[in-house]
Design a binder for these strands. Structure first.
Lengths: 250, 250
DNA sequence: ATGAATTTGTCCGTATGTATG
DNA sequence: CCATACATACGGACAAATTCA
């Protein structure tokens, strides 16, 4: 479990240790009590000086992950990665509902624009036809975990941005347009380093990892109603692909 | 487009620039010819010294993303990611079959060991019962793309390692034990920075990203037959979740 | 073919950040 | 707190390879 740290690859040791502690917490490093091992033990475990561990803990405390108290120890404020399901019936709040006290999905912007090749293909319309773009931010317990960009056919969903903004729910917004249920048709997943926009919008450190999903959602008749690109903070969530019950089509 | 870089975050400027260049390439920074702007221009664009840009380019060249030639310029080595399907009927070679000339899956080790909590839970046996662990390496056109660790109930699949080793196919190996077909029951996906083992086994550069999937495969009756942890080189593959035809269970 | 312009490669020195003990 | 060693970042100057008028 002792991560192999290296000097000279552009990431300071204290930040590698910080990432290691964050990952370790998900694997029970802090135990049931949520209490981190003493700095000296962490220093030995990571093979670095205690000063370096202190710098790492200081950074994590500043991020809100840890909380140090003189004489008592260092305690974890957020436990483990959230598990985000990407099965065919994905709903943001429903999926995270039992893992966080407070989940929210708020709109942070919208626009009408001509569709790009990918969006048009996904929605089954001609390239360049007007689509509605909706930008939203998903939070769990106040911490940003996902940043989505969704597109809708402007001819069919005029006003959906306002509806989503007022309800804070994509399911409710789609229901307002007669879409009673929808399913995820396909999802592609890739991982990359955080760009400047990611560090700003998801509150990430440079060099952090972002999981990117590209999805198409269809109504019950199989007609595409929405496509989206979502960026997740990889250190805060893991994705879970839920399979349907055995015996269905392949 | 000018990313605003910051000092003192524990991430070296040259690494932030490297991430910026990598992101920029995806947005057409290198143009049609795949040629990067001159170092001096990049330096001005990122607001850093040319030496810092050179350090970033050097790192990307070491990763295999870029290639510099004195007097000529710096060029992008265009390699598009392989799409790896993780639907319910995933097969390594079948999934990649049309994207690479030559795909192979070779066994690189095996052992009998007591099952850990996760493996036992996944396979539906008691913790500590003996399981067979099979280590394998997946390649496409000679380049390693995935590194899997699989576990089987030793009571049911004694000798499967030898069968997999000789056939090079997990499907064939399972068929030898009467498993005519199998389906993926669940998959969790997370992303993290490459550890030392990853850089060695998948031939990655330090700081690269690894996609980790944890999966359970069941036979047609729903009985678990195999569980596995697979590490993918995130810069060589993207995962694709294939949905079944609409109308199945949810 | 020659020379100028362009672009990458290498050297110097110096200041600051990081890591150890 | 201190001292020491190494990594990072900057600035300038020049060499080497390529391109093109």
């Amino acid at each position: 479990m002792t991560a192999h740290l290296q000097r000279g690859l552009g990431v300071a040791l204290w930040r590698q240790v910080a990432d290691g502690i964050r990952a370790g917490i998900a694997n029970g490093l802090a135990g049931e009590a949520g209490r981190l091992p003493p700095e000296a033990e962490l220093a030995q475990r990571f093979g670095v000086n205690r000063h370096t561990v202190r710098a790492a803990i200081s950074a994590l405390a500043h991020e809100g992950v840890l909380e140090s108290q003189q004489g008592r120890g260092t305690y974890v404020r957020r436990r483990q990665r959230l598990v985000y399901p990407i099965g065919e019936r994905t709903r943001f709040s429903a999926g995270l509902g039992d893992q966080a006290r407070d989940t929210s999905s708020e709109m942070v912007g919208t626009a009408r624009e001509p569709s790009t090749l990918w969006v048009a293909t996904a929605l089954g319309i001609e390239t360049g036809k007007t689509v509605i773009r909706v930008e939203s931010l998903g939070k769990a317990d106040g911490v940003p975990v996902s940043r989505s960009t969704s597109w809708f056919d402007a001819r069919l969903f005029d006003g959906i941005a306002e509806l989503f903004s007022s309800t804070g729910s994509m399911t409710a917004a789609l229901a307002g347009f007669g879409v009673r249920d929808y399913r995820r048709a396909s999802t592609s997943i890739e991982a990359r380093h955080a760009e400047e926009a990611d560090t700003r919008e998801l509150n990430l450190a440079p060099g952090a990892i972002v999981l990117v999903t590209r999805a198409v959602n269809c109504d019950l008749s199989g007609q595409p109603v929405q496509c989206s690109v979502t960026r997740f903070a990889a250190d805060r969530v893991e994705l879970s692909v839920e399979a349907p019950a055995p015996g269905s089509s392949g």
